[in-house]
Amino acid sequence: MKNNEHEFNQLLSAIIKTTHFVKTEVIQTLWSGYGEIARFETVEPDLDKFSNGPDMTFVVKHINPPVIQQHPRGWSGTISHQRKLASYDVEAEFYQHWANKTKPFCALPQFIGQASLSQSCLSSKMIVMSDLDREGFPTRLTTVSAENSKICLRWLARFHALNMQHDPLDNWPNKLWPIGTYWHLATRAKEFDAMEKGPLKDAAVELDKRLNNCRYKTLVHGDAKIANFCFSNDLAHVAAVDFQYIGGGCGIKDVVYFLGSCLDETTLERQFEQLIDDYFTELHTALCLFQSAFSRREIEKEWRPLVNIAWADFERFLAGWAPLHAKRTTFSHRLTVAAIATLNK
């Protein structure tokens, strides 16, 4: 254990160019016990770490998989383990080669460095990034109002507009997931097998095909739940984190997943269609801002009919992964039934 800690400190020192740092806080543990995210602070050697002397805070995502994998919902296994390991490689790739170019337009952590740890585990690594709390995004939420959700829709719209593609080449996006999101059908065979027989299971392949065959694609965050957004204190600005499942796809997948993550059923019943309209308005604005060559009307024409399809696709995942999940509501069922009905037209 001491050897592991020594190697960790050596590699971190090389990245931040100083040996004078302390861990001040564990922000959270990673899913299924695969490590932790912690806040660190540099300290001047002659100053007490609690003084008002010069300091810099930064965040380290330390991936350190357990010897025995235990999934909270019982979905452990080799496939799940390998998917998680690949997701951390993808995230490191995104932070190193995409994030700093994205940051001026869509707030997210700045990449500082990464390293692999050899002594503890071949799959152990660290990703070092800037501290969003220090950059003005200290607030975390579990739910938001429909009005406050719009700032996240703006972030998603800008991110999608910035990375828009039309009939992208086969190697795009290089070294990220070819298909973004953690729940898409090709990676969830066990969950599909666990689904009850019925219209949704029968429609699963076609739902997946409709989403993946769209001609306009972008980078989708892939896990754009409310927990992965960091807000300013006045909730007027937002940054995003956790890019493990970033990859190519239809931006609407991010939008419906986000709205389902933070709004209750009553709010969704009343506000969902308006919020979808708000997203497309923000997407049009962002495409203009970035002087995109792509047609705003053509993108919306293709993506808007996929709203219910994307919702039903995530419902398909839940139906196998956690059939009694609280997100499986009357509203969710209604959109899913509507999506399946369109497949036969």
Rank of each mutant, 00 (worst) to 15 (best):
M1G: 13
K2N: 07
N9F: 01
L11T: 10
A14R: 09
K17L: 02
F21C: 12
V22T: 08
K23V: 04
T24N: 06
T24H: 03
E25L: 10
Q28R: 13
T29M: 10
T29F: 13
E36T: 11
I37K: 12
F40G: 03
T42N: 14
D46R: 14
P54A: 12
D55Y: 14
V59I: 15
V60S: 07
K61M: 00
R83N: 12
K84V: 15
L85M: 14
A86V: 14
V90F: 03
V90A: 03
E91S: 06
E93N: 10
W98I: 07
K103P: 00
L108P: 00
S116D: 10
S120L: 09
C121A: 13
M126W: 02
G136I: 00
L141A: 13
R154M: 05
L156G: 09
R158A: 10
M164W: 00
Q165S: 06
P173T: 01
K175V: 01
K175F: 12
G180N: 13
L185S: 13
M195Q: 15
L200N: 01
A204S: 15
D208I: 02
C214T: 10
Y216A: 01
G222N: 07
A227Y: 08
S232W: 10
A236G: 13
H237C: 02
I246W: 05
C262G: 08
D264T: 03
L268C: 02
E273T: 05
Y279R: 10
H284L: 07
H284A: 15
L289K: 13
F294D: 02
K301C: 03
E302L: 02
W311D: 06
F317Q: 03
A322E: 14
T330A: 15
H333L: 06
H333G: 11
K345E: 11
